[in-house]
Write a protein that binds this DNA or RNA. Structure first.
Lengths: 155, 155
DNA sequence: ATTGAAAAAAGTCGCGG
DNA sequence: CCGCGACTTTTTTCAAT
């Protein structure tokens, strides 16, 4: 698929808001029948535009109300240390997101936890055991103002 | 629902990884028939444990490869300014997430954009027009090391 | 490429244990 | 709460246009 047309974008937008929408509904909304909708969705899945379908769970209700963003830097920046750091990050369940960033710190982590005790354990037992972390600055989330998962796809 | 049992957690974990898993499959995997699975899912939906089902779209493939985290602070912290700030944030499509945070800055934003030109427009036409922002520090994402949406729910 | 219909699969729900 | 089984809706396929 070389480029997305308006219909593709409409389909992606709908599915980003509600993965459970059925094809009849989509077909009515977009004024085309369900076969082309079906085929476009399969194509969008196969070509990787759609990475997956997930249920979003309320972190507070399941006992994980604490969100912390951690900026960290590594002591050494050679390939071996970076590879190892990345591997360890992937194995720590509390880390939902990790990005390498430009600026003052090397990485930004989003961590979701039960409470401050767990944060303490996370920071001092898990994170500092990750080889090579030398600097760390955490911001605790006090309130969630906005959290959407649906991208506004440009045409 | 007073507390989640192991079956509820298993269901939530499965749906967080794949919202499209069917009840037959879930039923085989958890060794209970589909009626209780069905009823538990409905309960989890109705009581807000499941916030929704969404398709995850590849931001790079749809032309939004640039992710920026912006720390911002407000000049005035009275209720009126905060309310107004929050309302404006919700209307800006590029802002996917916004949290109020403890620490140096008041808010952390996650912004998803096309390119640096769009970032420039976002920062200087949209964000600085949001009444009351006095300080801002942005970190550009160079690479994504980990990004999961599935919480490890504690028992 | 689109339609409409038909086959296959999945979701829904009452009833009995 | 769970399981069975019947019923409904949705998904998926496909011949024809």
């Amino acid at each position: 698929m070389t480029k997305l047309d308006k219909t593709d974008i409409d389909i992606l937008s709908a599915l980003q808001n509600d993965a459970k929408i059925n094809m009849k509904e989509l077909s009515d909304r977009l004024h085309i029948s369900k076969t082309p909708i079906y085929e476009r969705i399969k194509r969008l899945e196969n070509e990787g535009y759609i990475k997956g379908y997930v249920a979003l769970v309320d972190n507070k209700k399941v006992g994980l109300p604490l969100i912390v963003f951690c900026n960290v830097s590594l002591a050494v920046h050679d390939d071996e240390h970076i590879q190892r750091f990345q591997k360890e990050i992937k194995d720590i369940d509390e880390i939902m997101e990790c990005y390498s960033t430009g600026g003052v710190y090397d990485f930004l982590l989003k961590v979701v936890l039960r409470d401050l005790d767990d944060y303490n354990r996370f920071a001092f037992e898990k994170l500092t055991k990750v080889y090579g972390i030398v600097k760390m600055q955490s911001s605790f989330v006090l309130g969630e103002i906005k959290h959407i998962t649906s991208l506004s796809i440009p045409f």
